[in-house]
Structure formats: C-alpha cells, structure tokens
Amino acid sequence: MLITCPYCGPRDVSEFTYQGDGNRERPAPASQNLDAWNEYVYDRLNPAGDHNEVWQHSGGCRSHLKVVRNTLTHEISSVVFARGHVPHRSPTKRGSKA
C-alpha cells in the first residue's frame, strides 16, 4: 500500500503511523456531556468503503495527514495535510448508538 504524502510524494505504508479514525470530534476538555465523550471514545462508523483517517508520515517529513482510504480495496482517494482539519461525521450516523 502506498500513501502519497503531499510533501514527500508516494511512500510505502511502512513509513506511516495510523493515528486513528478521522471522523471523531473531541469534546472540549471541560465538557461534561457524557454522550459526546461516549461517542468520541467508543462510536465508530466502521464503513465498508471510503473511510476518513488520520495518518502521520512518521518515517518521513512527520506531517499529520488526513487520508480517505477504502477499507475494502485499500485504495487511497485523498491525502491532504491535517492542519486545519475539521472532522465531520456522516449526518445519518451522527450520535447513533449500537
């Protein structure tokens, strides 16, 4: 699997570290909204298809990256710098509980 870093170009996946689900929105540190914290810590969309992810090019330029990866094919359709990234969940799944 290759990830095309916006700075370094195409690199082997072994140079990157997975930083987690890119759909999560961390509540404000002082927030006492337990549903929001529960959603942040536990709820995952787990899609079969395109998935928003955060990766770091830890074995390269060390940039944090916002990646869209297809969980069925590993095809990567988008890589941009994560700086300024605002996470967004699918409206249909937002806040839903299993």
Binding site: C8, G9, R11, D12, S14, E15, G59, G60, C61, R62
Partner: peptide, 19 residues
C-alpha cells in the same frame, strides 16, 4: 530506502526524509 533514486524523481540538490 523505499524511495525513487532516479535522477528525474530525485534531482541534484533535493533532500528526502525517510527511514
């Protein structure tokens, strides 16, 4: 290093960060 060392992809003067 799993990077492209060809002169076209890696020109003189350029730098690469890898591991």
């Amino acid at each position: 290093f799993a990077i492209d060392f060809s002169l076209v992809a890696f020109p003189i003067g350029a730098g690469r960060s890898t591991v």
